[in-house]
């Protein structure tokens, strides 16, 4: 793992994937309720130094996907199928203790709510040094200056003082930085960020996003960015997966996807959000209904009831995911 940092920055595409998710499905079963498939056959690759986005609305399965990969779903009441191979090891089949070890060392995750991800009764400094001790085998003494450096590098002012602070004494942006510092402490090769800026103000969001961007460029860490915000994706992700109803409905590089959205859902999303840079005055074109109107994927396209251009086959047949290179599309009647 040391060579990631010492070798020149890996080229972005064409490498072996670092993480390769295949046919990931997660089904929740609750007593007395219908089983609910939150993630339904999701496949994607992440290469070193690459930023892959998982975009969608609440309930699309994007967060469940990441939790399943990280082995963080509650052990009871759900079934996880498929594979998530991280350099040949299937993370989904890893015993819990090995997975726990991996989680700190190779794969790190940052969450939407930084406060609940930090231990409230341990100082921030100690939490960072603990990661260094555990995953990088440093002594506490050696770890301390490194922790200080890390806080400094993620843009926490006055790191000496902040090391002694407890999470509740930091602002939301500072907490998120502290979490990123902890994630960095183990020099992970894969970082999964689940809505890392959703709880933050826009100026703080800008700081965090530029920090993440810098991190990816400098260390070659692969980043999986989970968000509902198309703006965040447009600036950050090399490759974007649009999720709807637990399945990937469209994929492309960010330039392709935004310039030429082919799935009516992607297209509809882009048409429905007011834009700072667009013309003003014209009414927005919303997507009708809500996710509550979805059809089951079994014999239909889940999005059909909300689609702007459905055809008969949409409610009769599941559209397959047609892939060509990076681009992929799951639609019977795509735009253009």
């Amino acid at each position: 793992m040391t060579d990631t940092a010492t070798t020149p920055r890996p080229s972005r595409h064409g490498d072996e994937p670092l993480l390769s998710v295949r046919d990931l499905s997660v089904t929740f079963r609750r007593q007395g309720e219908e089983p609910f498939t939150a993630v339904d056959g999701v496949s994607f690759d992440v290469r070193p130094g690459q930023t892959v986005g998982l975009v969608g609305e609440s309930g699309c399965g994007k967060s469940v996907t990441s939790l399943a990969i990280m082995g963080l779903l509650p052990p009871r009441g759900n079934t996880v199928e498929g594979t998530a191979s991280f350099e040949g090891t299937d993370l989904l089949r890893l015993p819990a203790d090995e997975m726990r070890d991996r989680r700190g060392r190779d794969i790190a995750m940052i969450f939407q709510d930084p406060l609940s991800s930090l231990n409230p009764v341990v100082s921030v400094g100690l939490q960072v040094t603990e990661v260094l001790e555990r995953h990088r085998g440093m002594s506490r003494k050696a770890a301390q200056p490194v922790a200080r450096e890390l806080l400094d590098r993620v843009g926490i002012p006055d790191p000496d003082r902040r090391l002694k602070d407890y999470p509740h004494q930091l602002s939301g942006g500072m907490r998120q930085r502290a979490l990123i510092a902890m994630a960095l402490a183990c020099a992970p090769r894969l970082l999964i960020a689940d809505e890392p800026t959703t709880a933050l103000d826009v100026t703080i969001q800008a700081q965090i996003l530029s920090l993440l961007k810098e991190l990816v460029e400098d260390t070659g860490t692969a980043l999986v960015m989970i968000t509902h915000d198309l703006g965040v994706v447009a600036g950050l992700c090399d490759e974007v997966n649009v999720l709807y109803g637990g399945r990937i409905v469209e994929r492309g590089t960010r330039h392709e996807l935004f310039a030429n959205p082919r799935h009516p859902y992607t297209n509809g999303l882009l048409a429905s959000i007011p834009r700072l840079d667009g013309a003003r005055g014209a009414p927005l074109t919303p997507i009708r209904g809500s996710v509550a109107d979805n059809l089951p994927w079994d014999h239909a396209c889940a999005f059909a009831p909300r689609c702007s251009q459905p055809v008969d086959v949409c409610t009769a047949q599941t559209p397959p995911l047609e892939e060509s290179g990076v681009r992929a599309l799951r639609c019977h009647n795509p735009v253009r």
Partner: peptide, 12 residues
């Protein structure tokens, strides 16, 4: 009392 109904939307 709302609980988690709002989030998923799928609890019909």
């Amino acid at each position: 009392p709302s609980g988690g109904i709002a989030e998923a939307g799928a609890v019909d």
